[in-house]
């Protein structure tokens, strides 16, 4: 098990909190809520060690487009980068909805 923490600059506030996903094999849950400051903060708890670089690249890509000042907790049970991105996009969509 590994913890990864990342911070990003944000362009706009996040209006509400959303939860998507489940901590099941090959999947993950995302808890997204307004952050206390003007930045985005991500905490990843993952069952698979040693993939820090991959996590950073997926999250970099996500935040280029998302730009919300969100605190995000990810609880991961071995999801692929594709699934991670899918869940993040679902969360972002739910925030905008």
């Amino acid at each position: 098990m590994e913890k990864i923490e990342l911070d990003y600059p944000a362009r706009h506030a996040v209006p509400r909190r959303v939860h998507v996903g489940v901590v099941g094999s090959g999947d993950l849950e995302v808890l997204l809520e307004p952050s206390p400051d003007q930045r985005a903060h991500v905490l990843v708890n993952t069952s698979v060690d040693g993939f820090g670089v991959v996590w950073k690249s997926v999250l970099d890509r996500f935040f280029e487009r998302f730009g919300g000042a969100a605190s995000i907790e990810i609880n991961d049970f071995g999801a692929t980068p594709g699934t991670v991105m899918l869940r993040l996009e679902q969360a972002a969509e739910a925030v905008r909805a």
């Binding site: 098990m1 909190r17 939860h19 489940v22 901590v23 849950e29 808890l31 809520e33 708890n45 993952t46 069952s47 907790e73 609880n75 991961d76 049970f77």
Partner: peptide, 21 residues
Amino acid sequence: LGPFDRLKSPWLPLQGIVAQA
């Protein structure tokens, strides 16, 4: 007691298992 209340298992992380919120 939804996910944002974050009442997670105190025992799973001690065994290297990721807990759901």
